[in-house]
Design a protein around this nucleic acid. Structure first.
Lengths: 220, 220
DNA sequence: CGATGTCCGAATGTCAACATTAGGACATGA
DNA sequence: TCATGTCCTAATGTTGACATTCGGACATCG
């Protein structure tokens, strides 16, 4: 057997999850202050646990905090988007190439299955499409087998999710049109493609998302 | 004027600095447990501050902690080295290319100055050479102007320092022979070179360090 | 003798009270 | 009117006491 250790979680991680969800669903919009006392009261935990949870979210880049000035949700400026997607392009490129070299057949099958689920999801209007999008990339990173690379991905993952949420809100049509195809291409290239082609495709996949998002931001 | 904000620091960061130094100077060798009560007593701070400091070190990848099982210094296995340097190669590549596109003349001059200081340092036996090596790359990342990229670098920076320390301990001669030249090449390519050549050189610079370190580990 | 169950100590996880700080409101003076 | 100095308050930073958990030592049972 090869099960992942049944990790018990503390209140800090629990708090981080709740706050993250609240950020995603718009309860705390970009720039909003996250006050420790308020959160501790609402979540019914001590300030210490909330504090530790906020530190976790800062590690994910979702919030920003400064000495004696508290924690706030990050902004979504053109610069932020540019920074995150530029780094992500480099990480995705490495993850894809490494996955191609090391992925097991089970891991390759998992990629195909996510793409298949995407297809089914599109018929239903696609409310969970973004989650599948992220899950696909999670699977690629997992297949790379490099825990430091996975950590680096987790440091931008939530920001990508937050940014993509805003993109889909407006231009859902364009997103639906491209997602499935692009991910299917990636899965096939990882299974058996040219290393250089895969590297360029993985980068381009991210850069096209970046351009779409920047265009959306400029339009407001 | 364009001064960086005069950031006041808390006890957590102060504690993290002390513990980090203790790890580098061998007080806490790889695998050693870092007990909160002991550290709190030695540093004359509360356990809460130590705890927060340890969380910062975990963000740097220098220590690892698990639920109710405490914090320990990371190991230095071949796999760890491989993971860190593989990620670093991808980050360095992006940093170098971005720095080439955006670096100001002041930032380019800073690179040259560090290389010059390296040359002077070699004559004196080179005890601070590793610090200069890291400082050079800090400067490249700073010149990239991408704060997310800098964060990603900081998540592996301390590990690189720890690993290189062990390499230099043994094969100092080989290190001295190559450092200056390689960094001078990088600086020149960033100033005015071909983008593709720079990208490959930056990656190769890291991979050669990786190979040297792995060879050193295998020899024991 | 091996497998399972039960305790115990040492460490971390959690909490609420206290100390310190940032930044604005207000008053003062040139 | 603007610059400067001084409070004041709401938030974060820090602390020590209390609760919980892990993992090993030992006893027990088949």
């Amino acid at each position: 057997m090869n099960l992942p250790r049944a990790a018990r979680r503390g209140l800090a991680e629990e708090s981080a999850d709740r706050i993250r969800d609240a950020i995603f669903d718009g309860t705390f919009p970009p720039g909003a202050p996250l006050r420790e006392v308020d959160l501790a009261r609402d979540l019914d935990v001590s300030r210490g646990s909330v504090r530790e949870g906020l530190a976790l979210l800062e590690r994910e880049g979702l919030v920003h905090s400064a000495w004696h000035r508290g924690t706030t949700v990050i902004d979504v400026t053109a610069r932020d988007v540019d920074e995150v997607y530029t780094v992500r392009a480099a990480l995705d490129r490495l993850a894809a190439v490494t996955a191609m070299a090391r992925a097991s057949s089970d891991e390759l099958a998992a990629l195909d299955e996510i793409v298949a689920t995407m297809v089914a999801e599109i018929d239903r209007g696609g409310p969970h499409l973004l989650a599948l999008d992220i899950a696909f990339h999670d699977a690629v990173y997992a297949a790379s087998g490099n825990s430091r690379l996975i950590q680096a991905w987790q440091a931008v993952r939530s920001q990508v999710y937050l940014f993509q949420l805003r993109r889909i809100e407006v231009s859902q049509h364009e997103y639906l049109a491209h997602v499935t195809g692009e991910h299917r291409d990636l899965a096939e290239l990882i299974r058996d493609g040219d290393k250089e082609v895969l590297a360029r495709t993985a980068e381009e996949h991210v850069h096209s998302a970046r351009r779409a998002l920047l265009a959306h931001l400029a339009r407001r």
